[in-house]
């Protein structure tokens, strides 16, 4: 595997880490794009999905949204936004596209999570005299938590991937290392950039999976049902 060792040699070259086109700056851009947009997408999608799930309405919207999201090519949206007048405002097209593609997995999973909460548990909570607010905070939210986290993980992976594609539309981020490598016909640089992006995506997924398990409100409670 010559290509792979060339790629690691490229990564090991200190000069490739410095400057505006260096790995350090590109990684910073990537994390900044991804983090901001994921936060904005959460602020938009989660309250809406949890509320719709709580009142039990809007299911068709929540489920179809992710089907629509699948059919629309990310690259097309990025390029279309870049060519609109929004393209004059630097990073704005990328940021909008990132939010657009992060919302469907968040919304769908949080909604499905809320609706999949066992109806008999909800009925029992109502029978105990819980108010809508108590029901939401103490029953529905903890039980829907695993799926909400699945949605967050999917959205994060999606955002990292979309931020990579932004390079094809001329924006920054780690994808720029790949596209620059293609322009220079430098296979080592292309593979090195791809290794960085893939590692970042898998790392983000892994960290979020670990955090999700650590903060699970139902962690360790399953056993208490036996006694």
């Amino acid at each position: 595997m010559n290509a792979l060792s060339d790629a690691f040699a490229w990564l090991a070259t200190p000069a490739n880490w410095q400057g505006e086109k260096g790995i350090g700056h590109r990684l910073g851009e990537h994390l900044y794009f991804s983090g901001t947009c994921l936060a904005v997408a959460c602020l938009i999608a989660l309250p809406l999905a949890l509320w719709l799930g709580h009142i039990g309405k809007g299911g068709a919207l929540a489920v179809n949204l992710s089907n629509v999201g699948r059919a629309v090519p990310t690259l097309a949206v990025l390029v279309l936004l870049t060519l609109t007048p929004l393209g004059r405002y630097g990073d704005l097209p990328t940021l909008i596209a990132l939010v657009l593609f992060a919302v469907p997995p968040l919304l769908t999973n949080a909604y499905v999570g809320m609706r999949e909460v066992d109806r008999s548990v909800v009925e029992a909570a109502r029978g105990m005299g819980m108010s809508g607010r108590q029901l939401f905070l103490r029953v529905e939210l903890p039980l829907a938590y695993p799926l909400i986290m699945t949605g967050l993980r999917s959205a994060a992976v999606q955002v990292v991937a979309t931020a990579t594609l932004a390079a094809m539309a001329g924006e920054g981020g780690l994808g720029r290392i790949i596209t620059a490598g293609f322009n220079l016909q430098d296979t080592a640089q292309v593979v090195a950039g791809a290794v960085l992006v893939a590692a970042l995506a898998l790392l983000v997924e892994g960290v979020l999976a670990a955090l999700g398990r650590f903060f699970d409100p139902m962690r360790g409670r399953a056993l208490s049902q036996d006694d």
């Binding site: 595997m1 010559n2 290509a3 792979l4 990292v160 991937a161 990579t164 594609l165 390079a167 094809m168 994808g175 790949i178 490598g181 296979t187 292309v190 593979v191 950039g193 791809a194 290794v195 992006v197 893939a198 995506a201 898998l202």
Partner: peptide, 12 residues
Amino acid sequence: VPSLAMFSLLLP
């Protein structure tokens, strides 16, 4: 794995 990275990894 993001698609751009996937295609790039297959380049060699």
